[in-house]
Amino acid sequence: MSGAVRVRVDRDRCCGAGNCVVTAPEVFDQDDEDGLVLLRRAEPPAGTVDRVRLAVELCPAGAISVVPRPAPQHSATP
């Protein structure tokens, strides 16, 4: 059971290797201008969570992180 997650990317760290785009194209993209990571959706659909976690492992630059998605009633942003 993979719980719902929220994804964050750090473009300052990204080195544009593109592993995330290969692994979970529904969630990650690369900027046409600079080749750095772009997030298509911060809240990946249920079926992609395992691949998003693999993308975290594969990202050479440590630019992707996932945190548990806060339950709807806590709408505060960290």
């Binding site: 080195c15 544009g16 593109g18 690369q30 900027d31 046409d32 600079d34 080749g35 750095l36």
Partner: peptide, 15 residues
């Protein structure tokens, strides 16, 4: 390193 590499990342991206 990042300064030069980033001039090339878009060139070699999958798309």
């Amino acid at each position: 390193h990042a300064r030069l590499r980033r001039m090339l990342t878009a060139e070699f991206m999958i798309r």
